[in-house]
Design a protein around this nucleic acid. Structure first.
Length: 561
RNA sequence: UGGGGAGUCGCCAAGCGGUAAGGCACCGGACUUUGGAUCCGGCAUUCGCAGGUUCGAAUCCUGCCUCCCCAGCCA
C-alpha cells in the first residue's frame, strides 16, 4: 500500500526500545500511555501521538494506558474528558480497564511530597508570584535562593499541611523542590511542586485545594502505572532532568522519557488556544466543525480512522520540527475512501436535459456498480427517464480544446445508461442556458454501442422525476496560507479563508440514498467523497464534502490561469 | 550572549565510513463506462556552510551559519 511495509521500524524511539529490550532494562516490557489534559478537544496532532503510543505498545506486545493529566482544575472540564475518550476510541484504540487520572494519585503524590520534605529536598516558599519570578533569574543570569529555602523540616511539614488544609490563599504559598537556583536549566531552579488553587476539580470536587504541577505529577504517575516509555513532545526535553530527578529522589520505578517532534499540518492551526479562539469567536460552528483539525471535526467531515492512522504511520517520527503538507493526509484519505465508499450519482449544479426521442412515460432501472474497487459491494438500480439533470460543468456551448464533455452536436455517454447527443441549447431572455435538448441511441443501453463506436466522456446524471433534493456543504481549507501562524504582523485569524464553506442547496441525488444515515460515506461519482451530516433530517439529507476527487480537467484549467 | 533540540529533493523521511531508500507533490505516458482508481517512466553527482581526517565522509573531527523550545503558582 504505502511505504509502511517497506519502512524499517528503526526510528529513534523504536531503536531505543530495542536497546532496552536487549539490555533487559525493563525486562522486555513495553508500556506506554497517552496523557491528554482535558482542557480542550483532541486534534490530528494528538492523533499522531495516540497512534505512536498505542501503536508502539501493540507492536511490542505491550500495553498503552489512557491517562488524563488533570492537575489544573481551573482549565479542565468533564465535557473534554468525555470527548477525548470518544475520540481515542473512534480512532480505533483500546485501553481495556486502564483508564487513569493523575487525580487518582493525588493522595500518593501528596505522600511523595512529604517524603521529599522529610528528606530536606522540598520547602514551602512564601514569596509572592512576582518575587518568585524575580528570584528565578533569567536565561543568562542565575537565580538566587528564596529566604524561605532553609526553613526547618518540621516547619515545612506543618506549613505544607496548612496548605492542604486551606489555610493559605492562592499565591500565598507553594511547595518547591530544593535543587539549584543557578542551574543553566531554568526548570531546575527550585521548581514549584504544589500550588494553592481554591477551585473544585471535575473529579475530586473540593477534596483538594492544592494541586501538583505537571512536573511533579507526570513522572510519578508514569512510575505508579509502571510505564516503561514515556513519549512526549520536544518541548519537554528540558524537563527530562527534572523528570529523572524526582524519580531518583523518591527512589521509585523509573520510566524512560523520550521526546519526539509533534505533527504540524499546512493550512491549519494546531494549538488548543487557537482552536478555542476559532470556536469562541464564531469563525467555525464548533469544535466539531468539519473544517476544524480536531478529531471530531474530521469524523464529522467523513474522514475514516484508518486514513488518519495510515497517514500518521506514513509521516513517521523524528526529532526535527516540520510541517507536513495537507496533501499527504488527503492522499491517505482518498486511498481508503476509494476502497470502501459506495458510488452514487449526485448533481451539485443541475442543468436540465430533455431526451426528445425518449418515451414520455417510461422509466427504466439501470444497473449500476456500487464499487468498482470491491466486487462484493454489488449493484443497484438507478431510474432513468426522459428528463434528467446533469452537471452544468459538463456542458460547454463553445468547448475549448481538451474539453471532452457534452457540447452541441457532440455525443457522450450517460453512466450506466445511454449515449446521448446534444441537439439544441435552450436559453432564457438573458442568454443563460436553462435546458439542453438531446437524443439518445436506444442501441447503447448500458453504455456500449453495438457498432463499437466510442465516446470521449462519461457523465453522471440523475432523473429529475426520481431524484431526491438534498443539501451539500462544500469545504475548502480553513486558511489561505500554508502557515497561518507564521506572520509576525498579522493574527492568524486574518488568514481565514472566507470561502471555506460553500452551501449548495438544493442538489439532486439518486433515490437509492433515501435511507442514508448520519455518518454514512459515499463517493459522488466524478465529484468527490461525501458524508451524511448529523444535521440531516427525515426529509432532507445534508452531505459534507469530505474531499474532492482528483480532477485532471480542473487542474488543466488552473494551469492555464 | 545560558541551557536544550534540529538542519538530507517543494513537503515528510531513510541512511550511523563504502560511494543518496521510500512516500506525498510535481512532470510525462499507458489504460479507462468515474478526465477517479490502476499501471509504467522521470524527478538530490548531492546531504546548512567552510575546513580537516581517510583510499573513500551525508555519515568522524574542528569552526561557523540558520531555525525551534525554555525565564507559568499551564501542560
Amino acid at each position: 500500500m504505502t511505504n509502511n511495509d517497506t519502512k524499517p521500524a528503526t526510528d529513534f524511539i523504536r531503536s531505543t526500545i530495542n536497546a532496552h529490550n536487549q539490555s533487559g532494562r525493563f525486562g522486555g516490557r513495553v508500556h506506554t500511555r497517552f496523557p491528554p489534559e482535558p482542557n480542550g478537544y483532541l486534534h490530528i496532532g494528538h492523533a499522531f501521538s495516540i497512534c505512536l503510543n498505542f501503536g508502539i505498545a501493540e507492536e511490542y506486545g505491550g500495553l498503552c494506558n489512557l491517562r488524563f493529566d488533570d492537575t489544573n482544575p481551573a482549565k479542565e472540564e468533564q465535557e473534554y474528558i468525555d470527548a477525548i475518550i470518544e475520540d481515542v476510541r473512534w480512532l480505533g484504540f483500546d485501553w481495556d480497564d486502564r483508564l487513569y487520572f493523575a487525580s487518582d494519585y493525588f493522595e500518593q503524590l501528596y505522600d511523595y511530597a512529604v517524603t521529599l520534605i522529610k528528606d530536606g529536598k522540598a520547602y514551602v516558599d512564601q514569596l509572592s508570584p512576582d518575587e518568585i519570578r524575580e528570584y528565578r533569574g533569567t536565561l543568562t543570569e542565575p537565580g538566587k535562593n528564596s529566604p524561605y529555602r532553609d526553613r526547618p523540616i518540621e516547619e515545612n511539614l506543618a506549613l505544607f499541611e496548612k496548605m492542604r488544609n486551606g489555610e493559605f490563599g492562592e499565591g500565598e504559598a507553594v511547595l518547591r523542590t530544593k535543587i539549584d537556583m543557578a542551574s543553566p536549566n531554568i526548570n531546575m531552579r527550585d521548581p514549584v511542586m504544589y500550588r494553592v488553587l481554591h477551585t473544585p476539580h471535575p473529579r475530586t470536587g473540593d477534596a483538594w485545594c492544592i494541586y501538583p504541577m505537571y512536573d511533579f505529577a507526570h513522572g510519578q504517575s508514569d512510575s505508579i502505572e509502571r510505564v516503561t516509555h514515556s513519549l512526549c513532545s520536544l518541548e519537554y526535553a528540558d524537563h527530562r532532568p527534572l523528570y529523572d530527578w524526582y524519580l531518583d529522589a523518591l527512589g521509585i520505578f523509573h520510566p524512560q522519557q523520550i521526546e519526539f517532534a509533534r505533527l504540524n499540518l499546512t493550512y491549519t492551526v494546531m494549538s488548543k488556544r487557537k482552536l478555542r479562539r476559532l470556536v469562541e469567536e464564531g469563525h467555525v460552528s464548533g469544535w466539531d466543525d468539519p473544517r476544524m483539525p480536531t478529531i471530531s471535526g474530521h469524523r464529522r467531515r467523513g474522514y475514516t480512522p484508518e486514513a488518519i492512522r495510515n497517514f500518521c504511520a506514513d509521516v513517521g517520527v523524528s526529532r526535527s520540527n516540520g510541517v507536513v503538507e495537507i496533501e499527504m493526509l488527503e492522499y491517505h484519505l482518498r486511498q481508503h475512501l476509494n476502497k470502501t465508499s459506495p458510488r452514487v450519482m449526485a448533481v451539485l449544479n443541475p442543468l436540465r436535459v430533455v431526451i426528445e426521442n425518449y418515451p414520455d412515460d417510461l422509466t427504466e432501472n439501470m444497473e449500476a456498480v456500487n464499487n468498482p474497487e470491491d466486487e462484493a459491494a454489488g449493484t443497484r438500480k438507478v431510474p432513468f427517464s426522459k428528463v434528467l439533470y446533469i452537471e452544468r460543468d459538463d456542458f460547454m456551448e463553445d468547448p475549448p480544446k481538451k474539453f471532452y464533455r457534452l457540447a452541441p452536436g457532440r455525443e457522450v455517454r450517460l453512466r450506466y445508461a445511454y449515449f446521448i447527443t446534444c441537439t439544441d441549447v435552450i436559453k432564457d431572455d438573458d442568454g443563460n442556458i436553462i435546458e439542453l435538448r438531446c437524443t439518445y441511441d436506444p442501441e447503447t443501453r448500458g453504455g456500449t454501442a453495438p457498432d463499437g463506436r466510442r465516446v470521449k466522456a462519461t457523465l453522471h446524471w440523475v432523473s429529475a422525476e426520481h431524484a431526491l433534493k438534498a443539501e451539500a456543504r462544500l469545504y475548502d481549507r480553513l486558511f489561505t496560507k500554508p502557515n497561518p501562524e507564521d506572520d509576525s504582523e498579522q493574527d492568524f485569524t486574518a488568514f481565514i479563508n472566507p470561502d471555506s464553506l460553500e452551501v449548495r442547496d438544493p442538489i439532486y441525488v439518486e433515490p437509492s440514498l433515501a435511507d442514508a444515515q448520519p455518518g454514512d460515506r459515499y463517493q459522488f461519482e466524478r465529484i468527490g467523497y461525501f458524508a451524511v451530516d448529523p444535521d440531516s433530517t427525515g426529509d432532507k439529507l445534508v452531505f459534507n464534502r469530505t474531499v474532492g476527487l482528483r480532477d485532471s480537467w480542473a487542474k488543466l484549467q488552473k494551469q492555464k490561469k
